[in-house]
């Protein structure tokens, strides 16, 4: 009876795993397939150039790649200290109402649709940005990074918090018994021993930032250029895909979408692989 049930569970899990693996490979295959003509024609060099001006026949997507990298890194860098602070607060005030409330707010934040973040930012963040810096329209790298940072904040907090609670119980008792205050526990015991969790959380947040299209589309201004400052408009790969697909379906511009997709895919795969590698290294150092 139980054996039979186990058999079904096993097969079910196997099927689910295979399906998701197959889906990923299919995705990769399709991306490759569609960008194939591009990759092996002379257009490739055109694609990987720094100029995007479809009306004059320049189809370079490198500015978008730079935009994606800048925006994701900047927003992760901004979300990191905030996430660390929130986790520290929740850890050091673990039984207080305030920390429970904070955790609840963070949970709720994850369920707010991305478009709301963008929408609210357009009205709340963009005007003061325009006024304070008195440059441009307020739709720029910094505005998008601030909003995107807020968007990936709950992801980082929740993943790291889960690590902390998982590693927490016995470590906390030990460090209490050694006379460490809650803040000292967090800094000198929890943080070092959950550093793997922190890296995972940051990577996850970063990948979310790379993949997000809505925020840069709504807030970054979408000029396909190399930004000279944080106040310049940028375009990301994801926003580029969305923009071109919405307007065009034939030209070289259309083709660049597949290359963008492929590039996004490769970037995220590389970051994930790097994270995996880091984690394994840290693990073996601990042993």
């Amino acid at each position: 009876m139980t054996l039979r049930r186990e058999w079904w569970i096993q097969k079910g899990l196997l099927a689910a795993t295979l399906t998701s693996v197959a889906a990923i490979f299919l995705l990769l295959f399709l991306l490759l397939y569609f960008s194939f003509p591009l990759l092996f024609s002379g257009d490739l060099k055109q694609l990987f150039s720094w100029r995007w001006n479809p009306f004059e026949g320049h189809y370079g997507i490198l500015p978008m790649m730079l935009g994606t990298l800048l925006l994701s890194i900047l927003s992760t860098v901004m979300a990191f200290p905030a996430a660390l602070g929130i986790c520290a607060f929740i850890y050091t005030h673990r039984n207080s109402c305030l920390s429970r409330l904070l955790l609840l707010v963070v949970h709720v934040m994850t369920s707010i649709p991305t478009v709301i973040y963008g929408f609210v930012s357009v009205f709340i963040l963009v005007p003061p940005m325009r006024r304070i810096f008195a440059a441009g329209a307020g739709f720029c790298l910094l505005t998008a990074a601030l909003t995107l940072g807020l968007l990936i904040l709950p992801t980082i907090v929740l993943v790291f918090h889960a690590y902390l609670t998982q590693a927490g119980g016995s470590l906390r008792a030990v460090s209490e018994s050694l006379g460490l205050t809650p803040m000292e526990q967090f800094c000198f015991v929890m943080l070092p021993s959950a550093s793997r969790g922190l890296v995972s959380a940051l990577i996850l947040g970063f990948c979310r930032a790379v993949g997000d299209a809505m925020i840069p589309l709504m807030l970054a201004g979408n000029a396909a250029q190399i930004p000279a400052s944080f106040l310049d408009s940028i375009r990301t790969l994801s926003a580029h895909v969305a923009l071109v697909l919405a307007t065009d379906s034939q030209s070289m511009a259309y083709q660049s979408v597949f290359a963008s997709g492929l590039l996004l895919f490769v970037m995220i795969a590389m970051v994930t692989a790097l994270a995996h590698h880091l984690n394994r290294n840290m693990l073996s150092r601990c042993r």
Binding site: E176, S177, L178, G179
Partner: peptide, 14 residues
Amino acid sequence: VPLSEIRRRIGMVF
């Protein structure tokens, strides 16, 4: 006296 000093003075092994 701070709790951390109490914990330090009364050493404990689990």
